[in-house]
Design a protein around this nucleic acid. Sequence first.
DNA 1: TATGACATCGTTTTT
DNA 2: CGATGTCATA
Length: 722
Amino acid sequence: MLVLAGAGSGKTRMLTHRIAHLIATGAAQRDEILAVTFTNKAAKEMRERVNQLSGYDGYRIWVATFHSTCVRILRSDIGQLGYERGFVIYDQTDSLALVKRVLRQMNLDERSHPPRGVRAELDRVKSRGLMPADVIADGTLHDERLGEIYRQYQTELRRANALDFGDLIVLTVRLFQNHPGVLESYQRRWRYILVDEYQDTNPVQYQLLRLLAAQHRNLCVVGDEDQSIYRFREADIRNILDFEKDYPGAAVVRLERNYRSTQQILDAATAVVSNNTERKGKKLVANQSGGDPIRFFEAADDRAEASYVIRELLRLRDRGQPLSESAIFYRTHAQSRPFEEELRNYDVDYTMVGGTRFYDRAEIKDALAYLRILRNPNDTESLRRIINSPVRGIGKTTVERLLMIGEQHELSLYRASELAIERGMLRGAAAKRVPEFFAMMDALRDDAPASVAQCLAQVLDRSGTLRALEREGSIEAEGRQANLQELLVAAEEFERDNESLDEDHGEERNLLDLFLESITLYSELDDYDETRDRIALMTVHVAKGLEFQTVFLVGVEEGLFPHFASLNDPAAIEEERRLCYVGMTRAKSGLHITNASMRRMHGSVRYNAPSRFLAEIPEEFGVGREQRRNYARGPGFGTARPRPAPTSTPGAAGEPTIDYSEAQYAPDDGPSSGSRVEHPVFGAGTIMQVVGSGQNTKLRIRFDRAGLKTIVLRYAQLRLLA
DNA sequence: TATGACATCGTTTTT
DNA sequence: CGATGTCATA
């Protein structure tokens, strides 16, 4: 069954009721159902709702993400693929460090092979289910090289008994393909499969579902092609567009009634997304008609944009709307700064979802690395993190040397070090320090308490981590100590929550593994608490699946939303448009869309034109766009123009009008795309693009008679035409 | 080997 | 801008 569920049409409700129905009618036992989502938060919500509907009888339905489902399968059966069951999972940071090491091993220049890019490529390749040999066979020199890197990267992963995120899915698929007996056991076990957000599945995930559902064909997928926003990790919108082809005879259900937003908001969002070609097309009908018009606001710069948002937010609060009913969505995390600053200025409580993650902090990663090494000594990336942290006199040269020995003997760093100690291959201080360190690690392992929290406490103590922080005595060190305390609390909580779950699915699981993997697969969204009275800041990606009374969609500018990287790829633009649609449809009744004419990015100043998506929203759906294109003088503009008198925004009938003139015309306003200018030689023209700032500002101008020219603002005697 | 000053560089979204 | 890497120096 394919359920095409528009935004706010009750997708989760449909899924949970279907599960409850399967149980109630006796069609399936609880443990015969597999429900797959993309985020832990969605999984948790769905689990709770199912339990409410059909009563929790102590036996859980398996509702989980693709990744945690695969971890569970692999923990029990990965032996068939030559890994050990105690494998660790590498997150991006670990994976990136490994890519760098591999590039060094292969003597590849980081200039021609930027590690981050390589890592991203490996991710994509894995998402498509390709093996190193497949990549090499692809032909081009670049592919061949990438294939070699891929192969070496996998060799190192295996040596470390580590899997990256991509491996979790790829290896599960391979397990099923190469070991039909294993596949069969899961096919028998999960007789009903339900998949949320099907439009975001990538080719390997698609394969995985196909394999699992091949026998019984009880596959129910829910999705919305207009909300497919994970193309960059190879999500393939065709998976949903072609479902009926892949599963002939599938029932198709459309949910087109929206229970969330006002008609205004829906129509505006639909107007945007209907510019896409890759869609099935559906018409969303709101349950509630009318509503406030959408409010547009063009700010002079990013700070003015933030202050507009905060002022509007405070107005809502004064009218009694809790802060938690509003959210600020931006395209990239980097845009959060001015909003955070402004919120702090006004002493407004806020929460940022995503961004820098707690578990990404160095001290946390280090502490966890100790735990990983206790469980799995061959985890070279973790060992590298901690071998000299806290500082214990095992420097870069020694580590390089040990890694070299490992490479020569095809050993992990841990084993290579043991070998070096045994054969007396180290000289100087290292000859003393290295054995000391490994003796400590061995002792830690021998004395490790069964309790995760106690084990962690012991590690922090005996490794000297806490002592080093105390000795440092700085404010930063205090913060790090506090973070480690928080980690200890998290470990205790984890143990309390999981005591009863040991035998939940009839499999014994190592508690330490469970703790470590829950952290690796954890995302900040997962414990975002909507009930606390504070405004939420997040990217539009994170916002998917959430809803708010009022949404501020900010930074809606060419180059930002749609993002630079998408500008010359029509398919990528379509994805940005879907993203915009997702952002808009999170709003129940209030939607503010803003852009800034000028913003500081990466230390320099940028002038962005308003996003094309704004132009795609018909005029009648909003207010605030009437007074665009008023520009104060910028450097190089000959004639000083008086500041435009503050104009008030004509509101819709009965709407209070607001005067934003202060925010709109900051003193450092410059020339901006869309402005009409006159050049002494070329005559009149329109500014298409502004590049650079200050002395170096260059303008791309399309002159009415002379065509497209690039002009250096400082030299050209431009005059601004009103 | 540790440390701090300096240079470089690359900029999206996430399980 | 901020993170990361490199180099010189103690």
